[in-house]
């Protein structure tokens, strides 16, 4: 249980991205890996953005560091009691920089370079969850 907005609105799920969201509902963060050029990437587009090969799925560890972040004080489509909200890029251990939220700590405590771990926030749909990140245990 994380102290953050839930259930989140259900994002648009397509056949191309469904495995990503359903894995999140199982507590796993999937990235794409290209069998030809080796690129590990996100978002999970079916074809590798570097070489157009058919990509495979790979489970990431969920360990990441904060690459950058911004603090929303007001946000029309966000519940007031979950503000301020930290909009962030985190860099996964596997490489890709991923847009997410850092939750589970005061917004003022978030710093570039801090270690974070993936968590998964439920949506109104059982087979879709939204990955977010919390400060890593020391």
């Amino acid at each position: 249980m994380i102290d953050a907005w839930e259930p989140r609105p259900v994002p648009t799920v397509t056949p191309e991205t469904e495995p990503f969201w359903s894995a999140a509902a199982d507590g796993r963060f999937l990235v794409r890996e290209c069998p030809d050029c080796g690129l590990v990437y996100h978002y999970p587009s079916a074809l590798c953005p570097d070489c157009f090969a058919d990509a495979e799925w790979r489970e990431a560890t969920g360990a990441a560091t904060v690459y950058s972040f911004a603090i929303h004080r007001h946000l029309e489509f966000w519940p007031d009691d979950d503000l301020p909200a930290v909009f962030a890029y985190v860099e996964l251990e596997e490489g890709p920089r991923v847009i997410t939220n850092v939750v589970g700590c005061p917004a003022e405590d978030v710093e570039v370079g801090m270690a974070v771990d993936a968590r998964f926030v439920p949506t109104a749909t059982d087979d879709v969850a939204v990955p977010v990140f919390v400060p890593a245990d020391d």
Partner: peptide, 21 residues
Amino acid sequence: DAFEVTYGATTLSKYAVAAQR
């Protein structure tokens, strides 16, 4: 959008992360 707006991506926050970095 599913990977951005879901997390509160707005024009503001998307430029703010550039400034922060």
